[in-house]
Amino acid sequence: MLTPTHLLFAQSAYLTTCVVAAHPPAPEEAAVALLGATLPDLDSRASYIGRILRLTSDLIERYFGHRSFTHSLLVQLIAGGLAVWLLPDGYGLALMAGWVSHSWADMMTPGGVSWFWPSRIRCVLPGNPDFRMELGKGGEMGFMLVMTLLGVVMMPLAATGKGTTGLLRGALGDMEMVRREYDQYQGGYLFSVQITGKDNRTSADISGTYSVQGPWRDAGLILDTPDGPRSLCPSSACQWYSAHAGLNRGEPIKTSTVSVSAGLLAVSELRERVSELTQAGEVFLLGTAQAEGVKAQPPTLEVTTDTLTFAYAAPAILEPFQGRTLRNADLTIQVRHSPDIALPAASRAPIQARNEDIPALLERWLK
């Protein structure tokens, strides 16, 4: 096949592989895929790369022949293993997408490829010679057009980073699938969810796209909305009802945590630590503590008697607690930040237990 055909096929193969592998494409990787598409023709002195690396090409063609050694499955497996091991994430995938696509394209020509080298058997695709493509003829031109259209379709699909499974889940709009996908990748990416649904209390339409704060119970999500956090699930058990939902994966992140375990914990101390961590990224509170006279703020703060349960609560949840003390605090401060940012050692240190033994006469007056 002509070199432009191989390059077009390589790009379409790379983008298709990105869709399947849930790997967002990058221009640098696309360039590596183009390089991979030219490497098999090292066994031909007449090829572009053969003219550049003339000595290497001459040796390979002399001892192995054209469309044999460098086009073979054996060499592709060895090169693929080395590429995945030695190259950064994504570059090995791009290199092999281009390399393998070259062999498959050459199988569609009358001459075929010695894909099972060192066996001399030539592999062709399809088996009927009438449907194979002659060099530079109408069949190859049609194939180039199809590859161009395939690349146009695959580019936006690959850019979502969802993978085939994620795209199918998004198309189905099933909330259970959305939650399963979120659980699989949470902590490594920012997420938003595109929903069609209504408010369970007012029946108002709430369709739109919202950032995800975290999971809610077994089947739902907590969303960040202009009116505050809202729980979303496919039933009336939460604040918002989802008729159709699709999860969107955003920027990669790193999730760090700071543990808090204290018999007595001044909220001012907790707020001070949270304020330090907020400078690095988004901060959320999880866990339990005890305090009297606290009003619930579902879904991120639930109250049972004097037990408070924090569920991916933003730092603003602490504002009504100014001047208060929490008892039996067992909390986790979660920080979602850029992978390039390292939290200061002091801010990552756990808040240790203090004053575990509270006098019985004083305990009832602690608020």
Rank of each mutant, 00 (worst) to 15 (best):
G127H: 12
G142K: 12
L168T: 12
V152R: 13
G166Y: 09
V153G: 00
A171W: 15
R180P: 13
G142S: 11
R122M: 12
V124T: 11
V124Y: 08
M175L: 05
L168S: 13
M154L: 04
K137H: 10
D130A: 14
V146W: 07
M141A: 07
M155A: 15
A158Y: 07
T164E: 02
M154A: 09
P126A: 08
A158G: 08
R132Q: 10
M133K: 03
K137G: 04
G136L: 15
R169S: 04
A159D: 01
L168G: 13
E176S: 02
L167K: 01
F131T: 08
L125Y: 07
R122Y: 11
V153S: 00
R122D: 11
G151W: 04
V178D: 09
M133V: 07
R180K: 15
M147T: 02
L135T: 11
T165P: 11
A158W: 07
K137T: 03
R122W: 10
E176G: 05
G142F: 13
L168P: 07
R169D: 02
M177T: 00
E140N: 01
M177W: 03
K162M: 15
T164V: 08
T148Q: 13
R122P: 07
R169M: 04
L157S: 04
M177C: 00
M144D: 13
L172Y: 05
L145C: 06
F143A: 13
